[in-house]
């Protein structure tokens, strides 16, 4: 595409004020670069064309938010991928994860990342966290036709709100409905089990390390009861991905940091397979 500029110079379209949105710019100038899934014939069920990304959990702690996801992708009853990455840095103060049709979700996340950075570079300041959340809802709406054909993808957005100095979580439905979640949330096939686990383990005074442990525990519980969610794989050394967003910005936890937490959880579960219990009353 871009190599084919006439005379090697930037086309006038590039230098017009134009839209602040990268997606809108591409659809006007390089529509060939945008995903063209809309062209799929109607009435076909294409679910077997791309694997399903499974469970994502998120929870806040004072001063930040943790986002974590298992590594499994499934095609029907087959494990399509054991070490998939479903978490993405959106920008310096937010991260996004996807569940559902993997091929579409990954592209959505990649485009969303460029979208946020593009806005920030162009306008000289980043979007507000609400602005970021609304932008993602808008992009998701473009996917509605596909969702009707079985390619359902839902993202989970977490971010640090610099104005309010708190971590926040936003969930979405497949038509682009945006919902702010408080304290914790989970999406994907194992989310029912993960949410039950989060409900019992979450407290308001977790520190970052404890919040990461709670996220790993919740993913363990999801993998325990949902066949499409992958648990910690100690033999292959495949552990969940964990992102933390605080006032210091976005950070992906190093593999050995997560491994230490996950191995501790696995060891503890060998004593007590159902995990920690909550006090009654």
């Amino acid at each position: 595409m871009s190599q084919a500029f006439e005379g090697g110079r930037l086309p006038a379209m590039y230098m017009n004020p134009g839209p602040a949105s990268f997606t809108e710019f591409l659809s006007a100038v390089h529509p060939d670069l945008l995903p063209r899934w809309q062209d799929l014939p109607h009435g076909t069920d294409g679910r077997s064309l791309t694997p399903e990304a499974t469970t994502i959990v998120a929870l806040t702690f004072p001063g930040g938010v943790v986002l974590a996801g298992d590594r499994r992708a499934t095609s029907g009853t087959t494990i399509a991928n054991r070490d998939m990455e479903k978490l993405f840095r959106a920008d310096e103060f937010s991260a996004v994860a996807i569940a559902g049709a993997a091929g579409i979700g990954i592209e959505l996340a990649r485009l969303y990342q460029v979208e946020l950075e593009h806005y920030e570079k162009r306008e000289g300041r980043p979007l507000s966290l609400e602005g970021k959340a609304n932008r993602l809802a808008n992009m998701l709406r473009g996917n509605l036709g596909l969702a009707m054909q079985g390619f359902v993808v839902v993202p989970l957005l977490v971010g640090y709100d610099e104005g309010r100095e708190v971590g926040r979580i936003f969930s979405y439905d497949p038509v682009g409905g945006r919902y702010e979640e408080h304290r914790y949330h989970s999406i994907g096939s194992g989310s029912v089990y993960a949410r039950g686990s989060l409900k019992k383990l979450f407290t308001e005074d977790l520190d970052e390390r404890q919040a990461v442990t709670v996220a790993v525990q919740a993913l363990y519980d999801a993998a325990d009861d949902d066949s499409a969610t992958g648990g910690p794989d100690v033999h292959r050394k495949i552990y969940p991905l964990v992102d933390v967003v605080t006032d210091d910005g976005y950070r992906r936890l190093a593999a050995d940091e997560v491994a230490a937490v996950a191995e501790a959880v696995v060891t503890e579960r060998s004593e007590r397979p159902d995990g920690p219990t909550a006090p009654i009353g």
């Binding site: 230098m15 390089h30 162009r122």
Partner: peptide, 17 residues
């Protein structure tokens, strides 16, 4: 400013493609 904007768009399009 026009040049800067053109460069940002060129870089973002190329990096995305």
């Amino acid at each position: 400013e026009n040049l800067r904007l053109g460069g940002v768009r060129y870089a973002d399009s190329h990096g995305y493609a």
